[in-house]
Amino acid sequence: MRILLYTKNESVYSKSGIGRAMKHQVRALSAAGVDFTQNQHDDYDIVHINTVDPSSLTMIQSAKRNHKKVVIHAHSTEEDFKNSFIFSNQIAPLFKMHLVHTYKKGDMILTPTPYSKGLIESYGITKPIVAVSNGIDLDAYKKDEVKIQAFRKYFNLSETDKVVMSVGLYFERKGIHDFIEIARHFPHVKFIWFGYTSPSATTSKVKRAIKEKPDNVILPGYIAGDIIKGAYQSADLFFFPSYEETEGIVVLEALASKIQVLVRDIGVYEGWLENNKNCYMETKNEMFILKIRELLNHDCKDTIKAGYEVAKSRSIEEIGQQLKEIYERVMGL
């Protein structure tokens, strides 16, 4: 059994969750001893598709012509397409039609969470759908003093500076406007949002929030490697106010980094994140403000250890074994 991990145009997605999911799959299959290739010209039994762009549709059609099995990883939904960039809400119904058209071509559909599985089932798709996490490389987020110092030096942080961080594109649904607004209530705390989206694609609400941001909000753009890993390990709080996700790889990265986590209480976390146990959850800005103040003052119990256990249950090694079992099941369809 050989798997073709179809990663053409991977560079286009490298700064998104889908791009990181592709990299995780390479490591997961390697860890599980699964025979795979990323060369579409090699022989294979199953092609694993992660995107819904034209090249992926062409690959699916080629696989079908050659009587190969097709696994489609459903990272996208209409719900997480909405409220992202300019005109995304107007385009969303057409995007949903495209998703349904593409997903129906799979012999099996994978998606990161039971929540996203439920959404895809609601589209009327009857192909087998399995929820399997994108996974997290625990070793990559182990505490490393060199990375911590690289982060603090890059942002010229003193030993006493408190930091609240987040990671994501400048999408409205990510809640970056709320992140900026909440930062106003903590003028002596650094609020750092890693990520970037071209101003030409951002909504007016996000544009206005960025233009009027207070001085304690730092927007360094997309930064990879030691600096962002050092941020995860050094910051006082990971605050992710996203309104919609299919999983949220950055949340797994935070949990693996053993940082305190605060997220918005939304459906995607049901069944794996629990308020006051392995993270903290709120819904409205005024409640976020109160909770951040408590967390920065250490007036809440520490949920870091329990949060790390969640990350361990979604380790690359665990996901590799799950994918191996799924491929074996697909071969029998």
Rank of each mutant, 00 (worst) to 15 (best):
L5A: 00
S11V: 05
S11C: 02
Y13W: 09
S16H: 09
G17T: 13
R20F: 11
V26Y: 04
A28Y: 04
L29D: 00
L29S: 02
A31Y: 06
D35A: 11
D43N: 15
D43F: 02
D45L: 12
I46C: 03
I49P: 01
I49S: 00
I49M: 02
V52S: 01
V52L: 05
D53G: 00
T58R: 08
S62R: 12
N66Q: 12
V70K: 08
V70L: 03
I72L: 11
A74E: 02
H75D: 01
S76T: 14
T77W: 04
S84V: 09
I86L: 15
S88E: 07
S88K: 06
S88V: 06
I91F: 05
L94N: 07
K96G: 07
K96T: 10
H98E: 03
L99R: 13
H101P: 00
H101E: 07
K105A: 07
K105Y: 06
M108V: 12
I109S: 05
L110C: 05
L110T: 14
T113H: 00
Y115I: 10
S116W: 13
L119H: 07
I120A: 03
E121G: 01
Y123N: 07
G124L: 07
T126C: 03
T126R: 12
K127S: 07
A131E: 03
S133I: 13
N134C: 10
D137H: 10
L138I: 12
D139S: 13
K143L: 08
D144I: 10
R152P: 02
K153Q: 11
L157K: 08
L157Y: 02
S158W: 10
V163R: 05
K174P: 01
H177S: 14
F179Q: 04
V189S: 01
K190I: 01
K190R: 13
W193Y: 13
Y196A: 12
Y196Q: 11
Y196L: 08
Y196D: 07
S198G: 06
S198F: 04
S200W: 09
T203R: 02
E212P: 14
K213Y: 01
D215W: 09
V217H: 00
V217G: 03
I218R: 03
L219T: 08
G221K: 05
Y222E: 10
G225T: 05
I227Y: 01
I228Q: 01
G230L: 05
A231E: 05
Y232W: 07
F240A: 02
S242C: 11
E244W: 11
G248K: 06
I249N: 07
V250P: 12
V250E: 03
V251Q: 01
E253Y: 13
R264Q: 06
D265L: 06
D265E: 08
V268L: 09
V268Q: 02
Y269C: 03
G271A: 14
L273M: 06
C279K: 09
M281N: 08
M281Q: 04
T283K: 13
N285R: 04
E286F: 14
M287F: 04
I289W: 08
R293F: 08
E294V: 03
N297W: 05
H298N: 05
T303P: 04
K305E: 13
A306E: 07
Y308N: 10
E309M: 06
V310Q: 00
S313G: 06
S315W: 11
E318V: 15
G320P: 13
Q322K: 15
K324T: 12
E325T: 13
E325S: 11
E325V: 06
I326Q: 05
E328L: 15
E328D: 14
R329N: 13
R329E: 10
